[in-house]
Write a protein that binds this DNA or RNA. Structure first.
Lengths: 91, 91
DNA sequence: TAGATAGTTAGATATATTTCTAAATATCTA
DNA sequence: TAGATATTTAGAAATATATCTAACTATCTA
């Protein structure tokens, strides 16, 4: 999965806030939605984009779907940013 | 300037490539534009967005405007990402 | 199996973004 | 100062994105 999707996914403030919520612990779709002033289908759409970018994982347990952070891509993104910081030391 | 602008600016592949070009050295608007299959006004628009997000600086020298990286916001973004990676060590 | 609860999908609409062409501004040089 | 070069601004068109409501799917429980 290209970082392209991740950069796109991270460009929306709602999606970044969802990730921030998931830093603490996994949450169900409903719990996530309850944090926002937005209808559930809209939140569901954001979750889909985050999942597509591999920034989160989902797992159904009974009636609920639990979402959790997947940090693999965060590491890759850090690597990308690091190439910009890194060059300063070479000067 | 909020990181919001930076995240938005970074969501476009052309803009990320402009930043990558500027890792090597400062470049004029024309030099940057010559790397893309796109008219100059479109590149100029991307430069404006990067500048607005404080990801680059510009400086006119005679007829040319030189663009260069401004790494301050890169550091701030790294900090944001780090809060996601960091929590893994706490487990 | 019917009803309730959790969540997604579909489709519409409003807004934002990307790109283009044409025109304007800034600087240099003969 | 006129013409050439570098770059941006303005405005239009096409595409993408975010959000909503209505309807659908999945699971649980009485």
């Amino acid at each position: 999965m290209s970082l392209n999707e991740a950069f796109k996914a991270l460009s929306d403030p709602t999606r970044r806030q969802i990730l921030t919520l998931l830093k603490e612990d996994e949450l169900t779709a409903g719990e996530i939605a309850s944090h926002f002033n937005m209808q559930k289908p809209s939140v569901s759409h954001h979750l889909k984009i985050l999942k597509h970018a591999s920034l989160i994982d989902d797992e159904r347990r009974g009636q609920h779907i639990y979402y959790s952070l997947n940090t693999t891509v965060f590491h890759e993104l850090m690597g990308w940013y690091f190439t910009f910081i890194d060059r300063e030391e070479k000067k």
